[in-house]
Write a protein that binds this DNA or RNA. Structure first.
Lengths: 209, 209
DNA sequence: GTCTATAATAAGATAGAC
DNA sequence: GTCTATCTTATTATAGAC
């Protein structure tokens, strides 16, 4: 409405929105969508509740924004599986990208996992369209390598699930893994160790090299 | 107090408790601990809310009972990893048991997964004592086989995490897997297919056979 | 043992002052 | 744009009739 320095106007807005989204991510992980309260998101963002609702209108919108952030990250971090790379390099790259995501952005993985476990109410459409297409395309690449005798004859879709599950596990089950190993936090070398273990194991499982 | 046929007295009580626990399991999966309401548990159990609270006193107690059920199931279904079996048979048995659990009791796996993702508030003690001990014992068995040259030299603990993650994935991410594969439900043969894929893949990854 | 009614509290959301 | 005060509804839990 009032045009008071429109180009700098969004500064506070953007900062507040970022603070809200970060606080919201934690709240949604700890308490789930329904259990999260706008009040506690506001508290840990250091803002009055009304401001949070001013920026996002309602709780549903906050959650959508958090999920969108998560999917963007998934999209960026997933890397790719390119035929030209050949099975060895492609799998090395893919596993490394996924492991890296699990260790650098575990919260995104947790939000995603909770949403799926709870029935994917907000992600059904994403899975039905984008994800289904992605899996089918990558499965074709694997199948081509199999047909060419460059890797073991396994079901490509099961293989994709195997890579997803083994890599995400280190994000989603972080608490359990740390407790079992009697450690307080992950350290930098852990990601390398895991990536190298998984890469070698999977390549051997596919008779590559 | 009043001793009216004490041996039959528990009949309704037991039936009601079972109905409540089943309804509660669904509610806790869909909405998380904090998001679940005693009212909706009561509704889907077909009982007045006050009866639910009469049997379990409060929401926390209901959740504890659900978790206890889950851990009992984990304990029964996990099978064992026995040195005498040798690596091939032991891994075949273990993978089959875990896959079987994922397909027959996916809800237990989901409750467990959500609890861990959310920070294991109610399971820290279980993980710190029971689970840590279990993993260390089984890791020793794997290490013995490695030392005897009967399987590839991999980190045993990472191997256990790999088996856990790949098998549980089919329970926890059921919704995503079905959506990607454009299917409404799992069928009986799916469990066999998965167990056989994973067993072969893991044995190859360990240079067994 | 079972259930209705209700007390006490906390939630999402908005109106309107600043 | 920001925040205080408040409305409405939903929640846990209990008291007490049956």
């Amino acid at each position: 409405m009032t045009d008071n320095s429109n180009k700098k106007q969004g500064k506070i807005r953007q900062q507040s929105q970022e603070k809200i989204l970060e606080a919201a991510q934690d709240e949604f992980i700890t308490n789930g969508y329904k259990g999260a309260t706008v009040q506690s998101i506001a508290d840990s963002a250091g803002l009055p509740k009304a401001n949070v609702l001013y920026y996002f209108k309602n709780k549903e919108n906050i959650y959508h924004a958090v999920l969108e952030q998560t999917l963007d990250m998934w999209d960026e971090g997933i890397g790719d599986i390119k035929y030209e790379d050949g099975p060895k390099v492609a799998i090395e790259k893919f596993v490394a990208a996924k492991v890296n995501m699990s260790f650098t952005a575990p919260k995104a993985s947790k939000i995603y996992a909770m949403e799926i476990i709870q029935g994917a109410q907000h992600l059904k459409e994403f899975a039905r369209t984008y994800l289904r297409k992605w899996v089918r395309e990558k499965a074709k690449v694997f199948q081509k390598w199999i047909d060419e005798g460059r890797m073991a004859d396994v079901d490509p879709i099961s293989l994709i699930f195997l890579i997803w599950s083994t890599t995400q596990h280190y994000a989603d089950f972080e608490t359990q893994i740390l407790t079992i190993m009697n450690r307080a936090d992950y350290e930098d070398e852990d990601a390398d160790h895991v990536a190298s273990f998984l890469t070698q194991f999977i390549l051997r499982g596919l008779n590559i090299e």
